[in-house]
Simulated assay, not measured.
Amino acid sequence: MSLYKLCIIGNPVHIISQEDTFVCYYPEKISFPITGHESALFIEDEKIYFESWVEEGWNDKNDCATDNYDLYYKVIVKDFSGNTLSEEVGDLYQAADGTWWIA
Rank of each mutant, 00 (worst) to 15 (best):
G98D: 05
E55R: 15
G90I: 08
K47T: 03
S52G: 07
C64A: 08
T66Y: 03
W58G: 01
V75P: 05
T99Q: 08
N59P: 10
Y72L: 06
V89D: 10
G98A: 02
N83K: 14
Y49S: 07
S81M: 11
N62E: 13
G82K: 11
G90V: 03
G57M: 11
L85T: 07
E55D: 10
D70M: 07
F80I: 11
N68L: 09
D97L: 05
V89Y: 06
S86C: 03
Y93I: 07
E87K: 13
D91C: 08
E51I: 13
V77M: 01
N62R: 15
K78F: 04
Y69F: 14
S86Q: 07
D63V: 08
G82Y: 10
D60Q: 12
V54P: 01
T99A: 05
G90D: 02
D63E: 15
N62Q: 12
E87W: 03
K47D: 00
Q94T: 03
G82I: 02
Y73S: 15
C64W: 00
L85P: 03
K61G: 00
K78D: 03
N68Q: 13
Y49V: 04
V89I: 15
N83S: 12
K61V: 14
L71R: 04
Q94K: 12
A65R: 07
S81H: 08
V89C: 04
G82L: 09
V75G: 07
N68I: 08
E55T: 13
W58P: 01
D63R: 06
K61F: 11
E56C: 09
Y93W: 10
G82H: 10
T84A: 06
G82T: 08
Y73G: 04
C64P: 01
L92P: 09
N62P: 00
D97S: 03
D60T: 10
Y69E: 04
L92K: 07
F50T: 07
D63I: 06
E87Q: 13
S81R: 08
D97M: 02
E56Q: 14
D63Q: 14
E51F: 01
N83D: 09
A95P: 06
D67F: 06
F50N: 01
E51Y: 00
E55V: 15
G90R: 04
T99D: 10
D79H: 11
W58R: 06
T84E: 15
Y73T: 13
